[in-house]
């Protein structure tokens, strides 16, 4: 079930340079939300910007949910100025979300803002007592999101940065490659979210070692509910909608552009 609700803002705080965490109260959205799903938020009452903005769910709380967002344009800039107590028009939960497999050890591989939805998955895995390893990459130390939260969860965290300011100086896909033999590929399932080239690299590793993999894609979208067909990606099964058939796909299906 998808809901359209007015959600009251509990908190909207900076968590890294140009990154904010927004926490809202909701009536129903959080009750049916699962990791990997997203919401569409109308950031202002005016028609500029016209469309809603899609955001992955970062945490599912008892009384609402959180997102982490990067200020990339006018919409997210307006959202960053939203005050506590304000009401936002939200549609969600949207998309298919990740599929959890209790028989596999989870390998979570996040690039940049991809840590936000994978944190949500990690919380769920911990609740279900499923073993996991979390590989997190960012351009620099300041942009490693949710670091202290992972410490609280007791996550096995592996870090890389492009500039070497924290963890290994390499890409996160290369970091995972260096551990691949210590984490028996036959027993693993990879979940990945981040920039497209990074997810493509992870998908290639998964394919080479025959590891099942789930990628969470992003595409420019309008409706978010599968009607406008604006957000399609090419797959071996024809065009598929990121908002409705995804955002989580089996990378074997994707024809990477």
């Amino acid at each position: 079930m998808i809901y359209q609700e007015r959600c009251s803002v509990l908190e909207n705080v900076k968590v890294a340079p140009d990154y904010f965490k927004l926490t809202v109260l909701s009536k129903n959205i959080h009750r049916s939300a699962k990791p990997g799903q997203f919401v569409q938020i109308k950031v202002s009452g005016s028609s500029t910007p016209l469309l809603r903005r899609p955001f992955s769910i970062h945490r599912i709380n008892k009384d609402g949910f959180s997102i982490i967002y990067h200020i990339v344009g006018k919409g997210t800039e307006i959202l960053s100025r939203t005050q506590k107590g304000a009401e936002l028009d939200v549609i969600g939960p949207l998309g298919n979300g990740f599929t959890i497999d209790r028989t596999k050890t989870a390998i979570l591989i996040a690039g940049g803002c991809g840590s936000a939805p994978l944190y949500c998955l990690e919380e769920e895995l911990k609740k279900k007592k499923i073993g996991s390893h979390f590989f997190m990459g960012a351009t620099t130390k300041d942009l490693l999101l949710c670091g202290s939260d992972f410490a609280k969860l007791g996550t096995k965290l592996y870090i890389s940065t492009d500039d070497g300011s924290c963890g290994e100086k390499c890409t996160v896909s290369a970091l995972y490659s260096s551990y691949i033999d210590t984490l028996d590929p036959k027993k693993c399932l990879i979940y990945t979210c981040g920039p497209k080239p990074m997810m493509k690299a992870v998908s290639e590793i998964a394919e080479k070692h025959n590891i099942p993999c789930q990628v969470s894609l992003e595409e420019y979208m309008a409706c978010g509910i599968g009607a406008c067909l604006g957000c399609v990606v090419e797959t071996i099964n024809g065009n598929r909608r990121v908002c409705k058939d995804g955002p989580v796909f089996d990378p074997k299906e994707i024809i990477w552009q």
Binding site: L51, Y220, C228, L229, G230, V232
Partner: peptide, 30 residues
Amino acid sequence: KTVTIKPRKGNPQPRLMEVENGLVNSIGLQ
């Protein structure tokens, strides 16, 4: 939405771009 005699794949990306007070689409009748 438009229905055609045969299935249509529609146009490649980009299919959407928001502009001031509007939206440009090029879905191509998928």
